[in-house]
Design a binder for these strands. Structure first.
Lengths: 201, 201
DNA sequence: CAAAGAAGTGAAACGTGATTCACTTCTTTT
DNA sequence: AAAAGAAGTGAATCACGTTTCACTTCTTTG
């Protein structure tokens, strides 16, 4: 008589869970973490609020996972760009473009992921991911330094600083309202900035 | 019989108001905006919660003024550094050091001022101040470009990016816990980074 | 000093959103 | 098909901080 869900049932449950995360991410996309409430997520995913608690122990837990999902996705894309063949300057340029381009569509998301503060728990997670970001850029910088095409520098700091620079221009003067600036102009400027900042060319 | 407060009484009131702001700023310093509540500020200033509403129409209003107070202070210091005599590279270096040094003691404050999101109203204010920051650095960059010591570039973007870079390393890998890094090492690295990023030597 | 009005008080009302839990529905097992 | 347990529900409760307001205290004026 003892009931154990079959693989199939478990899969369905997992799907609900995943759906909650996806809908949550969508919400962040649209209005940042501040628009994520248990009921807003539940409504989007078309389940009751109580159901959310069958999958996540607390709102913090839910937000943390949403954050991870979103960040992992972006980091992955940048890693991909950096894993290609090519010289340091080119790869750096490509990675910058990928990061910027993706962040611009989905600016709200980028902002939420990089800066928006929610609660202590999520802030901790974000701190961890700052390192992930830095580590994403570190290898290419290190390679550049080793090859002698980049000047000697603390690559960890340079990497973090580069990410910060990109993040800032995304949420700063270039807010959706302020359009005295073409998107491409911005990206080009940042490509130059990033290259110069680490001493490429 | 109609009572009108004398200058003296008004001064005392103004003092209460100022005290609320100062105590609020202290709280931000210690625990970010999230630790600012009407009652925490009131308690610190040793007045009742209701009193706060005699001076500020709402929590948002209070936070906005605290934010302005804190930011104005920092911007002022950097402006001062940039107003000295000297060549572009030197002034830039000095300004970077001032910014970084001040932000490091008072990291929580720096973070709160630059990134911590609180409510829509304050976010608006922060957006305004991002421009202020950018404008603070713009003139020196423009001068550098004019003098030909810096390469042609979009100085507004460069300025914003520089600020972002500094902000990031302040809240990132260099969190209070992570001390594998000397403060001076960090500052030096950022001075180099900033100079390179705008193409100074 | 008495009246008028400003400044200050703080307990209570409110608002918002997280969390709980008794209950229903769906799946599996015998 | 009945029992056992998992998944899902959503109204009710709770937590926590903001805001209000009737009231007290302080200051000024005639």
């Amino acid at each position: 008589m003892a009931y154990k869900p079959t693989a199939n049932t478990e899969a369905r449950k997992a799907q609900t869970r995943q759906n909650l995360l996806n809908q949550g991410l969508t919400l962040v996309n649209e209005g940042g973490f501040k628009s994520v409430t248990i009921s807003s997520v539940a409504k989007r995913a078309d389940v009751a609020t109580g159901t959310v608690y069958r999958h996540f122990t607390s709102k913090s837990h839910l937000c943390t996972e949403i954050f991870q999902l979103g960040t992992e996705r972006e980091v992955g894309k940048v890693r991909e760009a950096l894993a290609q063949q090519g010289d340091v300057a080119t790869l750096l340029e490509n990675a910058t473009r990928v990061f910027m381009q993706r962040a611009i569509k989905g600016r709200q998301l980028a902002y939420a992921m990089i800066a928006e503060s929610v609660d202590t728990e999520l802030d901790e997670e974000r701190k961890r991911y700052r390192e992930v970001w830095a580590h994403t850029y570190e290898p290419i910088l290190q390679r550049g330094v080793n090859e002698g095409v980049l000047p000697k520098q603390n690559v960890a700091i340079s990497a973090a600083a580069m990410v910060g620079a990109m993040a800032e221009v995304l949420v700063g003067p270039l807010s959706p309202s302020t359009h005295h600036l073409e998107v491409n102009e911005l990206i080009d400027a940042m490509v130059d900035f990033c290259k110069r900042s680490v001493g490429a060319q």
